[in-house]
Computed example of a mutant assay.
Amino acid sequence: MMLTAPICLDSAPIASSPLLDLASTDVDEHCENLGRWRLSYDQISGGPFMGSFTQLSLPRVEVFREVTSQQVRQYGQLGADSFGIGLPWQSGGEVNCNGASVTGAQVIACIDAEVDMCTPKGFELRGIVMSATLVAQLASALDIELPRGVWHQLRVIEMDEAPVARLRALLTMIYDNLSKTALAFDDLAASRALEDALLLEIMDMLPTARPCAAGRTTAARKRTVALACEMMLANDDRPVSILTVCKAVAVSPRKLGYCFQEVLGTSPMHYWRAMRLNRVRRDLRRCDDPQAGVYDIAARHGFWHFSQFSLDYKRHFCELPSETLRRARAAQRPVRAR
């Protein structure tokens, strides 16, 4: 079905500065650049992090492009009453959402739901975020019955290829133009016309949406990983035995390894160490106690062998933990009046 009817619901005024374009060299800094999205990112793979986030704000729609260099786990919310569609653009590996990977004409849909997904190294995601209420209003105005199975959880959605291709073409056009000049989007009439085209494509896509049902094996692996992570991260202040975790979730070490590789793209021990390193880094960046040292903060997260911790930290974030703490304290230091 191809819609041609105009979208005529009331439009909100366009933002005075419609374009946000930020780059970062730190995963937490990148996360802070996401604006109102209430998401947390953990860097899973080791190496220098490079990220960028570009967002074009139209009257009722936000069009975004996100690039991350390292494997990342994203979790949280886009915001209350938010609807989002994401299209993997460039990828060095599989994107995993709730144990399901995205391929072909599939998209990632988040409608008033929690976000939890793992993205590979060298990943680019483009998409659209708007109000879930707006989507429901448009569907009612255009007499479209939305598939209820895509609401209230992050899902991999199968769509007809034609509307997905048209949306890809629109997003390509938008960012090609942004790279040349952003001034074209400052005009209110042009912004509303572009928004109208995007909304029509989305409303043409949604009736074809078919949630990709996770098989029993995939669902079981997701539950196993969730239980194991809950146990491991609840005890990040002391060493954890994989055998203890396996016993608690009733699987063999080999089976647990398969589950983690399928769902998170890494091994259980690598994931657990990466999560603890991310937590140490956050504590170092936020440390406001002048008496606290790197060792004190590392010990809170179960790192007792300090030289090995420093080596692991530098491999993961490409700087020593003392450098992270020194930079954080320099940023907190008040600037003296001349």
Rank of each mutant, 00 (worst) to 15 (best):
V245H: 01
S16K: 08
S310W: 03
Q137F: 00
E195M: 07
R192P: 09
M173Q: 14
E195K: 06
R327F: 00
G215N: 11
S45T: 12
S24D: 14
V251C: 05
E94D: 13
G302D: 05
F309N: 06
I85S: 04
V150C: 13
P268A: 09
E323N: 10
R126Y: 05
E323F: 03
L170D: 14
S307W: 03
Q55M: 09
Q71T: 14
A219P: 08
A80F: 07
A292P: 15
H301Y: 10
A189L: 09
M130A: 14
T103K: 10
P239W: 00
R254A: 11
D186W: 03
P207F: 01
W37F: 11
R60N: 15
S45V: 03
W89S: 09
V225S: 00
A141D: 15
L56F: 04
G84D: 02
T133M: 06
T119G: 09
A337G: 11
V129Y: 01
F317N: 05
E262C: 05
E145G: 10
R315I: 04
L199W: 04
Q71D: 08
V156P: 12
A80Q: 12
R216P: 14
V107A: 15
F303T: 07
A219W: 00
M173W: 08
E62D: 14
R210D: 10
L233K: 02
L199H: 04
M269F: 01
P147Y: 02
L34V: 04
R336P: 15
S11I: 10
R279P: 04
L311I: 05
C8H: 10
T172G: 12
A100H: 08
C259V: 02
P120F: 03
A220T: 14
R300L: 13
T181W: 02
E124A: 11
T217C: 07
N96T: 13
L206H: 12
F260W: 01
E230G: 14
S140N: 15
A234N: 10
S140Y: 06
L199M: 09
L199K: 06
D143L: 05
V115H: 00
P207T: 02
R282F: 01
I85P: 06
